[in-house]
Amino acid sequence: MRGLSSLERVILESIGMESLTYDEVQAQSGLQENVCFNILQALIIRGILKCSGNKYKINENISPLMMEEINGLEARKAESLEIMEAVLEQNTDKIFRFQKVAMDSRDEKIFKAMLSNLESFLKDAHKKAQSSVPLKNRQVVFWGMGEVQSLMNQVMTGR
């Protein structure tokens, strides 16, 4: 598989720049014990994580090729799709809206400005709470828009 699975990414983001024990990684990520263990082993085998004593740390000497594989555009796209699919299939507390909206150019500008406000609100909220809210309790938020015709052309050509 190219890139990272969203499960692997959660583990890496849980560890961040720190050195964490297995229990700390599990508490941050919220993954089941066996899943957490399997992923940590897989990441060590791939050379992305290092284990010293009982602590896990991200390898500082990841090759540029591996970095590209992990953070490349295609890999990130596939990872986002994985999470979006999970949001769509969520059974409880699901928030998801999908609509084809008729907007004149003025309303489109207003909407984009609102999105920009939303983005700065989220940035501030994250900055305020990132030290107190563990990764497992953070919210996944996504949005996007596109013109129907061009999207349909993309669907048709598969690009």
Binding site: S5, L7, Q32, N34, V35, N38, I39, Q41, A42, E82
Partner: peptide, 9 residues
Amino acid sequence: NKKFARTYI
């Protein structure tokens, strides 16, 4: 992802 969820690989 399914393999990760197994008890052991």
